[in-house]
Amino acid sequence: MEALLDIVSGVLLAAGSFFIIFGAHGLVRLPDMFARMHGAGVTDTLGAGLFIAGLMIQGGFTLVTAKLFLILVFFFFASPTSSYALANAALSQGEKPWTWNSEDSNGDKDGTSSKT
């Protein structure tokens, strides 16, 4: 039983780490701020969710699990709110979302290759 729970939580942690790393990878790779928000969203939702689920299994039926649960609930309320505030602020300051046909005017300002 113990070993089984360890395996399950290990798998959850590994999957969470996978989504966290590739969410962060998207944060670096995608072409503009609005697109990068999707990458950050991967980290914030499924990455954090799986990761905390893995830790919760390790915690067992204790208050540690309860606190991890509160952290998760807080993430699910706070992260879309700050994303919205960020996107709205950027939009109001005249940031234009990157699209394929706006490449010359706006895309790739930082020179990091986004399309390869």
């Binding site: 939702t45 994303s83 919205y84 996107a87």
Partner: peptide, 15 residues
């Protein structure tokens, strides 16, 4: 609705 959209990666409510 807006927060659900933002929580689903791939779509973000911007206004």
């Amino acid at each position: 609705y807006a927060n659900s959209i933002t929580l689903t990666p791939g779509t973000v409510t911007i206004d």
